[in-house]
Design a protein around this nucleic acid. Sequence first.
DNA 1: CTGAAAGCGCTTACAG
DNA 2: CTGAAAGCGCTTACAG
Lengths: 326, 326
Amino acid sequence: MEKKVISAKDVAKLANVSQSTVSRVFTSGASVSEKSRKKVLKVADELNYRPNALARGLIKQKTNMVGLAMKDIQNPFYHEVLGMFTQKLKEKGFSVLFVYTENEEIEQEEINNFLEYNVEGIIVTDALLSSKVVTKLHNNNIPVILFNRYHKDINCDSVSCDNINAASEIAGYIYDEGYRDIVFITGKSNTSTSRDRQKGFTDFLKHKGIDITILEGDYSYEESYHLTETMIENGHQPEVIFGANDVTAIGALDALKAMSISVPEEVSVIGFDDIKMSSWPSYMLSTWAQPIEEMINETINLLLTNSKHKETLKLKGHFIHRNTTK
Amino acid sequence: MEKKVISAKDVAKLANVSQSTVSRVFTSGASVSEKSRKKVLKVADELNYRPNALARGLIKQKTNMVGLAMKDIQNPFYHEVLGMFTQKLKEKGFSVLFVYTENEEIEQEEINNFLEYNVEGIIVTDALLSSKVVTKLHNNNIPVILFNRYHKDINCDSVSCDNINAASEIAGYIYDEGYRDIVFITGKSNTSTSRDRQKGFTDFLKHKGIDITILEGDYSYEESYHLTETMIENGHQPEVIFGANDVTAIGALDALKAMSISVPEEVSVIGFDDIKMSSWPSYMLSTWAQPIEEMINETINLLLTNSKHKETLKLKGHFIHRNTTK
DNA sequence: CTGAAAGCGCTTACAG
DNA sequence: CTGAAAGCGCTTACAG
């Protein structure tokens, strides 16, 4: 309370220059004499002066803030994503305004919050926006990018892994290995990731005349564990289980272990994401590595470009063979 | 670009009132006639107007933003913490400016960033601040709260679990069970959590005349797995292993399982944190539950109070008996 | 290179 | 209850 925050005016007074000059010293590209610059910098340092980002944002209509909204904060995949996003955005000079939502769809309210703070762009990972909200954002000329999700009714940029092709390649691998009794454990049915992985996987195998067993999961470890356990108890022991993501596959893996079924000798297990846990000694899960870094770079690119023409990027990634497949 | 963002002035013009009145409509407690309020609200809705938080922050010297800095984003414990913080802060009307740092100590730069945006307070989880930085923040009258960390040389609020007492209670339980060959796997040595848990644990047992084996870990699964494996290979199979956190305990647990040592029959394992994973069917880890919600509530309280008198809160938590102890 | 001045979009005494 | 005006802390033409 007592010590008021110091402003450019205070610095100007002490440095014997105008406030404009102080401002110029902190504006890259502005022309200031070396003498003035030194004087100002010295005083600024003594006073611990830093330009007020709010005032700057107000006048420049550029806040250097990006809104980041996440949902499934429990999935380790998104922790890596969160960490990498904040770091890469920082490198580009952006701060992140973070929102965590438990709802399937980002609320109008969260978006309004972003808008009030004049964020320069919004990144939404693993949650959806209504197309109405997206339109509104576009009218305000604020780029929105869906990360790891897309929706055909929503006209906005999106970046994800090419889930269909990846799952199709996994199916090819499984087919070549000669497996015919195959199980797919889905994620949440309303996610594009789960739907696409299921589609790429089943379509490939259907072409080969193979029908697979679909177990409806929800991307949680617990549900996947339970589904696998029940299936085995009911006498169905498949040759291979493909989980819609790593957490799902790990749930299945643990259930098999608990029932003393050896992996990969009796049952193979494959996941998707390549989260850190997948390479833990006790799992060594074979999985599909999403190209996280590339995905994040592309997302930030789209954010900075903010072109009228919306893109739906699908990046490849690659299969990682560990110990849960032969 | 074309559609410029609309301001209170635009609304005022269309609603036939002054800009002040528009502002009053959006200021709770301000007196506006019902008639004006309705008119303004109607126009505002049509134009999709929302007050600019930057301008408001500038003039009120109150931004409703809180800085949150995290480090060990890999530990699931902090995901729960992050999610709960953002939700509870939202309830109180705050937005969070998020920073992720890989360094042990929060950088001056990150703090400056917070300061430039005039955050109303800073929460630091599992990282440290130099006392110089803290002093500077206090001079600016910005509250800083260390979450799950404290440091005697740093005079600022902190909230954590009473790690010493908790570990002491765990030691008591172990002692009562009759175990005498006891191992403690530490976390990172420069964290107050690991040091306190070690202290509470060893001090209690030393009093009883028991020396325990200390294995120097780093809070990572991999290191803990490796340490346990090596210990067993070297012929030392203790009666109980206490890990400085759940991830550590789980690493030990998996190593034991991999070596076909049955838990808890041959070796008991205990963790600390009660992360979600600990209650997975394949782990069912006995652990100490940190009172996360209470810790977060207290942290936000301290933030809002911002009293001159700094507190070091230590909350209790409780032991959870699952399947890795008898 | 530099200063005075206008203006970003608000809030809030002040006067009525 | 309401409007005109000052001011939050900046940036940026404008003129010199």
